[in-house]
Amino acid sequence: MLAPSEPAVGSAGWRLLRKRALRFADWAVNSEGSSRSSALIRIGIAMLFWSRWAGELLLYMHQSAIGLVLSANFFIATALLFIGYCSRAAAVWAGAVGLAMFYYFGHELGREPWTHHHTYLLAVAALLLALTPCGRSYSVDRYLAVTRAGRAGLPAPAEYGNLWGLRLIVVQLTVLYFFSAFDKTSYAFLSGARLEHIFLWYYAGSDYPALPGFHWLAMITAFAVVALEYGLAFGLPFRRTRRYLLLPGLAFHAVVYVTLPVYTFSATMALLYLAYVDADAVDKVIARLQGGGPIEPAGQGMS
């Protein structure tokens, strides 16, 4: 027989669950804020596409029909993304080009370096960017919107929008960090052996380093990497822990960037950290640097 208090406890639990679900839904799809951080990511993603593939996709490099089609699509889509003309469509286009490089040219045609994580991450970042107001700031779209409004005698449109695309980038990075750490949570990695393999492969060759305590260093580094990745997965999304993790996370990617051939992966991760930071806080920093006021959030009138 149920005790009289049990239904009340059950409904309280249900209410708490519902409250949390609503809070999550609000965070996920109802957050609005400055479009400037999305715009910065847009510009950065276009530049990362170029830094990784522009040299490889010059028109003379692949003179087949499909190679030329790929090159043309790559340069047009990323140029539009960079200047911010039809920004969200350009983001979809650039992301589609990235996925074509990953799946078709990489996996189907065997261009192995294009099957790496950094290709997929750049493509997905571009696609998710299409769900942000990335064209409402620092873009030709913005210039045209302001010009149109001026002609109509209206105030310039707000550099503001729904940030659910940035939230999805946060989810993507959380999934990436968690499963990267989860995969490393094994004896082989935590014993330091896998880091030793990597060190020998790229640096020492087949002569184990004569440095005393090298094995212990590898083991401690392995534990630190796994702990940091779990920390980044669960800590970066939350403001309270983020402040302690941003710098270690960026330092981690910087170290990986200069020590291992990860192409644009580290730089993309560092750029996407903008998605973690409150968009209006980014806006305030930009405004402070430029000597102007921040974009005011909805409901607070005009500036």
Partner: peptide, 28 residues
């Protein structure tokens, strides 16, 4: 991939550095 061992290029597993350095010989 990590829970069910299903490897497919359609899905990303995020297994970083899982293949680098495999096979290398440490010899004296």
């Amino acid at each position: 991939e990590q829970a069910f061992g299903l490897r497919t290029p359609l899905l990303r597993s995020w297994t970083m550095f899982s293949g680098i350095g495999l096979g290398v010989i440490d010899a004296s």
